[in-house]
Nucleic acid binder design. Structure first.
Lengths: 191, 191
DNA sequence: AGTTTCAGATGACGTTGTCACCTGGATGAT
DNA sequence: ATCATCCAGGTGACAACGTCATCTGAAACT
C-alpha cells in the first residue's frame, strides 16, 4: 500500500509543510530542524534525509511559494473574461498579498542564500515569465521589455515597504498598496 | 586623558564598526557577539554593556546607515548647482548603491526585527523626509504625496531585485538599475 | 578616604545545526 | 524463498552561539 518512495515523499511534504508553518509563525529563526521534525512526526535528524541543510529546506519552502504564485499568475493570464489591465493589477496584487499576509515567507522568496545565491531567482523564473507575458499583452513586446523589470521592481518595493511597516507612516498620507498599484498600472497603460 | 565615558563611547563605536564589518563580510549569521567583541578588542560579554542583545546591535548598525543616507540625501537637496531631476536621480541611486555594494546592510535597513518591528522605520524617517522634499521640489506638494511612496517603493524594489541577483537575468534584456531609475524619473517628471 | 558606579571579564547553561553511527524494514537479485 | 542491498529514520555527540549571573577593578563622586 505505502511503498517506500511514497512514504518518503509524504515525509518530505510533511517536513516542507511544518517548515512553512514555523516560518509563518516566527520567521526563519523559529524554523529549527528539531521542531520541524517534531511537527512532521519524525526525529531531529530525519530532515537531513530530504534536505542538505536548513538553508536548503528554506529554499524549498520559498521555491514552493514561487511555484504557487506562478500558477496563480498563469491563471490570470489565460483568463478570457478579464481585461488585460485587470490581469496586470491582479498579478501585482498577488505578490503584494503574500508580503502582506506572510511577510516571513515573502522575505525568503527574495533572499539569496549564501550557499546558492541564485536558487530562488531560478525558482522565480516561471512566475516572472508569466508576468512578463501579461505586461506584453498590455503594452506590446517592445514596451514590455522596458517596463517589465520596472513593474516587478515596483511591486516588490511596495510589498517590501509594507512588510517593513513603512507604508503605514502618515508621511505618505495614508496611501495604500492598492493605490500605488493603480497609479503604476495607469502610468504604464497610458503609454 | 581618557575619561570613562570617552572610552566607553569609543568601545561602542568599535563594536558598531566591527559588527558592520562582519555584516558586510558574511551577513547577519556571521555577526557573532564573540567575534564582534574580539574585533573590538574586548571580551564576548562586553557588547551587552552597550546593546541589549544581538538584535539591537544590528538595529544600531542599520540606523547608522539610514543616518548616513539621510545626510547624503540632504546634501543633494541643498545643492544649488544641481537640477532637481538630477537630485531625484541621485537620491534614488544612492539607495540602490547601498544595495549593490552592501547587500547585507541593505537588508538590515529594511528588516523589521521581532523585538521592535518599527525601529528601523523610525531610523529611516529623516532620510525619507529629505527625499520627499526633493520630490516635492520637482512635482509640487500635491503630486509628491501621490508619487513619493511609489518612488521610494520602486527604488527599494529595484535595489531588492539587484540584491537578489534577479535583475541580471537575460529575460529583462540586460536592463540596468540606472535605466530603471531613468525611466522612473522621466515618468514622474513628465507630469 | 571611603563609597558608589559601571565597563569589562569569566564561568556556566540551554539551544541549535550538523555529523557519525546504528537500526529495521522494504526492494531487488538469485 | 533466501539473501544481500538500500535507505529512511533514530540516537548520541560536539562545537558554536546567545545570554545570564557573578566577579573585578578602576574611575567618579561625596
Amino acid at each position: 500500500m505505502v511503498s517506500r518512495v511514497e512514504s518518503a515523499a509524504a515525509t518530505r511534504r510533511a517536513l516542507l509543510g511544518a517548515a512553512a508553518e514555523l516560518l509563518d509563525e516566527g520567521g526563519p529563526e523559529a524554523v529549527t530542524l528539531r521542531e520541524v521534525g517534531a511537527r512532521a512526526g519524525v526525529s531531529r535528524g530525519a530532515p537531513y534525509r530530504h534536505f542538505a541543510d536548513k538553508e536548503n529546506l528554506l529554499i524549498a519552502v520559498g521555491a514552493q511559494a514561487w511555484a504557487g504564485l506562478g500558477e496563480r499568475t498563469g491563471e490570470l493570464r489565460t483568463d478570457a473574461e478579464l481585461p488585460v489591465a485587470a490581469k496586470l493589477r491582479g498579478a501585482l496584487l498577488a505578490l503584494i498579498e503574500i508580503g502582506r499576509t506572510q511577510p516571513h515567507l515573502y522575505k525568503v522568496m527574495f533572499s539569496n542564500p549564501p550557499g546558492d545565491p541564485a536558487a530562488l531567482a531560478r525558482a522565480a523564473q516561471h512566475s516572472q515569465t508569466e508576468f512578463l507575458a501579461i505586461v506584453a499583452a498590455l503594452v506590446g513586446e517592445e514596451a514590455a521589455r522596458r517596463y517589465g523589470a520596472l513593474l516587478i521592481s515596483s511591486a516588490n518595493g511596495i510589498a517590501g515597504l509594507e512588510v517593513s511597516g513603512q507604508l503605514a507612516d502618515e508621511k505618505w498620507g495614508g496611501v495604500t498598496a492598492e493605490d500605488l498599484v493603480d497609479t503604476l498600472v495607469d502610468m504604464v497603460a497610458r503609454d
